[in-house]
Design a protein around this nucleic acid. Structure first.
Lengths: 180, 180
DNA sequence: GGAGTCAATTTACACCGTGTAAAGTACTGA
DNA sequence: TCAGTACTTTACACGGTGTAAATTGACTCC
């Protein structure tokens, strides 16, 4: 239950990789969609989110939290990328997958909203943004797709992604921060 | 050859909508992938790009061109969205579709690079960006996915998309422009 | 040791969408 | 009239998901 990753993977591949018959997989998981959802849940348990989010949680200021979150996210996405692509493809047709995806993305959105709210509280939110709009844009900037676009298509190393996105987010959302 | 749009559409749907047998479609287009490519070409002819890009072409300054391009793009995407989704899904498996997509996106990338180049020429590019990195980020900000995220998922009207993206792009790339 | 249970296996098939093949029909124009 | 063309219907191959049934094998309980 470890090495899977992505949409081109058929049930027989999963079965083969697990050294088990195709039907055994159906017995255990029910369907391809259910398998994905189970994989997501398993990933949650195994990826140590609590540890990874320590810096984020420790940062109470809006600006610091924004920076910490981008850093967490940039390093987190590569590890969930395979399953994320599979979910993204399957959520078109499967309701349970769509729900699992929306649930995950909802958590990210909440984080974005929280960050924007703190910037506002600190008087640091750049003018011109409503809280919701800023959260929408931050969430969009940090989407898996944008990560794919920069890291996979344009070939950015993860470190550059993190650095530039931190800078971009600061410029976009933090009042008076164009110098660097 | 007009009303199609998107990935859930099967060959029989296309045929039915055209009032023709499924095989006739195969006779004309060869395969689903070829049909998509043909649809893209047809769209190019019919969408009046030259007219739509007039403001963009007329704007020679980096800042103005950036603004004009975001406006063009925001209004253009809704019309290509259906076929774009289908291409996006099919490019995973079909080489010709992938080539057609990459060709289109290449054009957009060139436009982004041109804009960033003009900003730099005008001395208006915000500090901290290399030309390539700024083009990469602008291109990513303007991706179909980001448009979907804001307009379809977050429910933004197109006008708001255009306005906020213009503002965001200005903040991100134009030196000294946080006030508005 | 023998019976029952439970998991996993093999084999087979239904369903769907893409794509191919073949035979038939109807309209066109030299 | 005949050839060509455009389209039709019917049929099937292929690949992937998902279901069903009969079979094997191991482990437990008495």
């Amino acid at each position: 239950m470890e090495e899977r990753s992505g949409q081109g993977v058929r049930m027989r591949d999963v079965a083969g990789a697990a050294g088990v018959s195709r039907q055994a997989v159906y017995d255990h998981f029910g369907s391809r969609a259910d398998l994905m959802v189970a994989t997501v849940r398993h990933g949650d348990e195994v990826l140590g989110l609590d540890g990874r989010l320590r810096h984020y949680r420790a940062a109470t200021g809006g600006t610091e939290r924004l920076e910490a979150f981008v850093e967490f996210w940039g390093n987190y996405v590569p590890e969930i990328h395979g399953i994320a692509r599979a979910l993204l493809a399957a959520r078109e047709t499967d309701e349970a997958v769509a729900a699992a995806w929306d649930d995950r993305m909802g958590v990210v959105y909440e984080a974005c909203h929280d960050i924007v709210g703190r910037l506002h509280r600190d008087g640091a939110l750049a003018s011109g943004w409503s809280l919701d709009e800023a959260a929408d844009v931050l969430w969009t900037m940090l989407s898996i797709h944008s990560w794919e676009s920069l890291v996979l298509e344009r070939g950015w190393p993860v470190g550059r992604y993190v650095g530039r996105m931190q800078e971009l987010a600061r410029r976009a959302f933090v009042r008076g921060s164009e110098g660097a």
